[in-house]
Design a binder for these strands. Structure first.
Lengths: 207, 207
DNA sequence: GTCTATACAGGGATAGAC
DNA sequence: GTCTATCCCTGTATAGAC
């Protein structure tokens, strides 16, 4: 059972802990998940978990970091993955991973404490999204794109609405996050509007 | 020392508990405030607090309810307090009450659990804001007001951006919540825009 | 109605043995 | 790396004093 050279046992264990933890958050809710629960699910003792993570809070922050790596929202000016459809796709996908939105939202609140492990995560995340949005605008020849608001303000608003809709969605899962953001983008970034080849359904004051 | 007829001792005590609790949230952060801390500050034993509230969670939910009563955001179609400037004013005021935004945000997340005391609070709150916004639109002769999006979608977005900006503000207090919402309202509810060019920038197109 | 005293189950975290 | 054992803190239920 030789482990793959670049995939030592410790890393596999660590990943397994993160997977089991997210599963539990999805089925029981963040507040009801204890280190003991996770340990039981993994098949070890609670103290063993703290060998891989400094604290429970850090453990959960790592779940978000790993998710972002998978989603690849990193600011590569080349492929510009910040396009409208990619953003909405990530949103829709998150809504299908039980617990991930609850986890993200909970940590977004706890991160207000500068000492919380998630604090630096959210600071870095917002800066990354800002740069991605700027790179996207630059990719369009720096044209204002017909946007009614400055790029920084627009980015801040889109991020805020996304987070806020997630809070609403947690309370009422009937809230259609993607459709709402879609409508907002129509207004804030009109040049991004979907081609909608056949027949344009709406026509707000386009450029 | 006769207490005012309509203000029995129990109510005063209850209010004091809520005040001390909010103070502690402001100075120590929600997560670091225990019932023992509050009890100590009030000068009683922890169990005494549970004479006024069913649980710690209910205690904190009551702080939000009391705030809303003071702010008077209730849907009185008469005065339509949902006007732009009134809304922004409440936002600015909240930013000056240490802890209230942290408390609101934290409960907004915990309220995802239908059994949490804050669940019904947030459901009712959103429905109330929806009705207030609708009443406001009706007050303007039912004219679409030149809004690029339907009233319900607009309301949902404004609530979401408010909540989302609060999350950003908790992490970075330099975020200007009011200014950002102000800019967004310019776009989503253009008829509300202040006659900016020459005249003073205040004066919303109120009733 | 208001409160104290007490007790309990469960939480995260730590120290040190293996 | 993983264990056991332990520590201190949490929310809160209960019983009873005033």
């Amino acid at each position: 059972m030789a482990h793959r050279g670049i995939y030592p046992k410790g890393v596999a264990r660590r990943d397994e802990i993160l997977d089991r933890a997210l599963e539990l958050v999805g089925s029981k809710g963040y507040s009801n998940v204890s280190l003991r629960d996770i340990a039981e699910r993994v098949g070890v003792r609670p103290a063993a978990l703290l060998h891989y993570f400094d604290s429970k809070e850090e453990l959960f922050t790592e779940i978000l970091r790993r998710r972002d790596e998978r989603d690849e929202i990193s600011p590569s000016a080349a492929s510009v993955p910040a396009s409208r459809e990619a953003y909405l796709q990530i949103l829709r996908h998150n809504a299908e991973v039980p617990g991930i939105i609850a986890l993200y939202s909970r940590l977004a609140v706890d991160a207000a404490d500068p000492d919380h492990p998630a604090h630096s995560y959210f600071v870095a995340r917002h800066e990354m999204l800002r740069q991605t949005a700027n790179a996207f605008a630059d990719g369009h020849d720096g044209v204002p794109l017909g946007m009614p608001l400055p790029i920084d303000v627009t980015t801040r608003i889109v991020v805020a609405v996304t987070d806020g809709l997630q809070l609403q969605w947690l309370i009422d899962p009937d809230v259609d996050m993607a459709a709402t953001i879609d409508a907002l983008l129509d207004v804030l970034v009109p040049s991004l509007r979907a081609p909608s080849p056949p027949e344009p359904p709406r026509h707000v004051g386009d450029d």
